[in-house]
Write a protein that binds this DNA or RNA. Structure first.
Lengths: 227, 227, 227, 227
DNA sequence: AATGAATGAGCATTCATTCAT
DNA sequence: CATGAATGAATGCTCATTCAT
């Protein structure tokens, strides 16, 4: 006897199809890039016809949007440090932060590769540009909050200075950690160096407050000269 | 009987067409990625018909190969430090090294973006995988020689240790410096931090010879250590 | 056991949906043609899902049939002259006839455009060809009865001759009046001329009984006669 | 031995393909309408693959444009009366005019049906709307010049008045002549009546100069009343 | 050295339609 | 009555590539 489906279990089969398509899309787009992943390839990989993909997501870029949304939710859940674990030392806290980011990379490599593809590719419509920008901004926030929390034992004003001055660089170091292995498992040695480097930079921020006139040389950045 | 024109008399018009195609390809492939750059788009951008592109390069991946070859030659020429400038201090030498890499990034962003696309993308045939691997290896060599030269003032054995232990990390930091701006002009502040970070790591190599058991914590990287 | 709702209790909501679909279909098919009007467009326009359209009409051509039926009923109701108004003069009666046809055109332009589309298009299945033929035949009957009534003051035998000889031409003139503005409001000036032309032709029928050998010349229509 | 093709015989095969595609398109679009004629149908009918159609015409609407252009050129060549034949009597001249129009209809029915389709269909992009408007305007010019020439024996001022007042109506009558048979061979009887009707209207223009207050009644055009 | 013309495979997308609920 | 979900076939169009000239 046909029992009417209760509204809170909405069309179980439809939801399952949707997830299967999203899985296939994350896997393939994160492997080959957005442009190189055709709808018919996704159809083959998900076992559903192209028209079903369109029924669920409306368009290829709509599918991309859904992949990004779900991927971002999952990645940030994996990369955000658990509040309970709070060692007293900044160095250990930093290690915890780096560890969570690295484990996020290890658990969601395909999503991050897709983000990298989109970050590089200037072709996509502007909604996907927006989606990427959103993810990047959220990641930046995560890094910033992480630094703030890591260096809170040094006192809040200093922690804030560290976060202000190192967020961009930290994000860049994480990007590099990811890109060097092209989205494979990040190298433990490099991760260790990244951690050490960040801590060294934090100590420089703590010890030498004069930032813009510091000892950095970097010839070639300014129109040749120094500083 | 049509004798193929000998290479030392390069039939000016033909050579010019070839360069125009390469320019368009570097620009477009470095902007939109390889897969998203069609031959007919290249034809429109270069002003020559598709068949001419095939006459010059044989296939789309042949064109990619030529773009990579020319791009690599140019990039490494721009990123290799001039031998004459040799300041006495490692820190200054490092600054010079970073400066050259950054100026290579600034002058050839499209080529580097293309490399990044190919590094991420598993789609290309294995020729292009080879080409990318070659470029990466060459870049690694450049970084290694750069570090060796920078820290030579500390004595060759130590310089060699620094190079051995920091090459991968240095390359990762450069990758991050590039990816953070997605191939736009690299941030001067981040470049400065990268430089400072590398130097700090070098000092750690110099001061604490015990590497693997050092103070690094990085929970989650080793088969679960901290946290 | 689900008993089909008896027709005299038409389940208000269902009837309303049906009418909304018919409205959207008449509007869209009469604007863009049958082939260019898709079910999903109709769904969007009517606010009901495609499956509901199928529930009500069974198929796209079933929907067309229903549109034609309702449209024909409405159009002929609007175009049939009221019996009460019966001026004594043929000319005035003719004016009344033309007026009603024109007002039918003004009130149901979309239906007539759809008829014209189907009249021109050989694509539709033969049901719709039949439907169109039915509408055309009914229209012809209307015109014929109208002419008969208009020229009854001249005596029935003559009125019958006028109707016999002018029905086709009158229908053609009405067609032209409609097509010239492509289904917009018919031009009042042209309508006046059509009326005058029909009356002049009727007078010719009255005055010169010799039809086939009359003064008409029309080179090129008979198997080459003049020119 | 391969002789280079002289430039004035440009790619004979290409031109032939182009014409074959145009032939198939005129035939099919003029039979089923623009929307109902798919590219793959055209490919089957012309013997060339869809991609070749795109090579020659760029898009479906580009093909439509080419069909319209060629069709208009041919139709107007067929429908324009030869200057040499100039009988003295207006009635005979009118017969000649009608005859040419009718023979244009007989020789190019498919083109005219396509025009009618486009005239009715509000969906097409605005370039096709433009093309249709152009054809309609050119046809109007043809009718106007034809009337002027036909009634020149009555003196130029009168001929000009006839043309001014009857061009729209004449075009409508021709439209009706065409639409009644839906683009089949126009009925000779109706054509004869159209000719007679036009002449009768011309005589009314000649005899009664007061146009706007004339004997036309057409109830229903003005907001009910008369005139 | 170059190109106009062609082509089969594939693209993203929409089609009319069905059916379990 | 109504609808969410699905589907195979077709849509207009672009793809990388070839080849005679």
């Amino acid at each position: 006897m046909a029992v009417p489906v209760p509204p809170h279990a909405p069309a179980a089969q439809g939801e399952r199809s949707r997830e299967e398509i999203l899985d296939a899309a994350e896997r393939l787009m994160g492997t080959r890039g957005y442009a190189a992943t055709s709808i018919s390839l996704l159809a083959k990989a998900s076992g559903l016809p192209p028209s079903s993909i369109y029924w669920h997501f409306g368009s290829k870029s709509g599918l991309l949007g859904a992949v990004m949304q779900r991927g971002a939710r999952r990645f940030f859940a994996a990369a955000t440090p658990d509040p309970p674990a709070s060692p007293p030392e900044p160095r250990e806290r930093l290690a915890l932060l780096v560890g969570r980011v690295v484990s996020g990379m290890r658990e969601h490599p395909r999503f991050l590769r897709l983000v990298a593809f989109l970050l590089l590719g200037g072709d996509g419509g502007h909604d996907q540009h927006e989606a990427v920008a959103g993810v990047r901004a959220e990641a930046r926030g995560l890094v910033r909050r992480g630094l703030l929390w890591a260096y809170l034992p040094w006192g809040e004003p200093l922690a804030r200075r560290v976060a202000d001055e190192l967020t961009d660089t930290a994000q860049a170091l994480f990007d590099g950690l990811f890109l060097t292995t092209a989205g494979g498992t990040p190298s433990a040695a490099v991760a260790r160096d990244v951690e050490a480097a960040l801590h060294a930079l934090a100590e420089q921020v703590r010890d030498g407050p004069e930032r813009s006139g510091g000892p950095a040389v970097s010839a070639g950045l300014s129109p040749r000269g120094g500083c």
